[in-house]
Amino acid sequence: MTGNGKIEKVSIIISKGSLEGVYPGLIMANGARAEGMEANLFFTFFGLDAIHKDRYEHIKVATVGNPGLHLPTWAGAIPGVSAAMTRYMGHKMDRLDIPPIPEFVQMIADTGAGLYACQASVDLFGFGRDDFIGQVKDIITVGEFYDLAAGGQIVFT
C-alpha cells in the first residue's frame, strides 16, 4: 500500500488444481490489472495444472469432499459426475462471460501480469519448461517469488 491507502501491487498464489481452486486467483489477478495494479501470479503444487499445456483445458470441479456442492460424497465419486458438473459450471460461466481457463490465462498474460511456476513443485512433479504454456515467464524459487512480491500484497489461494 502507498500513502493514499490504495493497493498498488499484488502477488497471487494459486495452489490448487480444481476449477474452484483456480478461478478465484485468476479473477483476482485480472481484476488487479483492470484496476491498474501491478500483478504477478505464482502457480504452485496442483495449481501448476492451470499453466500445464496438456492439463489446463481439463481442469475439473472437485465433486468429492466438497460440501459446498451439496452433493453426497458417494454421488460425487460416480464416474462422469465431475465432468458433468464441470460442463454445467462452464455453461453458467459462459453466460456470465467468464472465459474458460485457457482463454483466461492467455488474457491475463496479455494484461501484462507475470505468470510464474514454482521451482519446488516443478521438481516434485518432474515437469520441465516445455510442459508449460509459452506465457509462463519463468520457473522461480520461493526466494525469487518474495523478491518479485516485494512492496505489494500477497494473496494465497
Partner: peptide
C-alpha cells in the same frame, strides 16, 4: 493495456 496502462476499461 499499452494504450491505457493503468486499466483500460476504467
Amino acid at each position: 493495456y499499452e494504450l491505457f496502462p493503468k486499466g483500460p476499461a476504467k
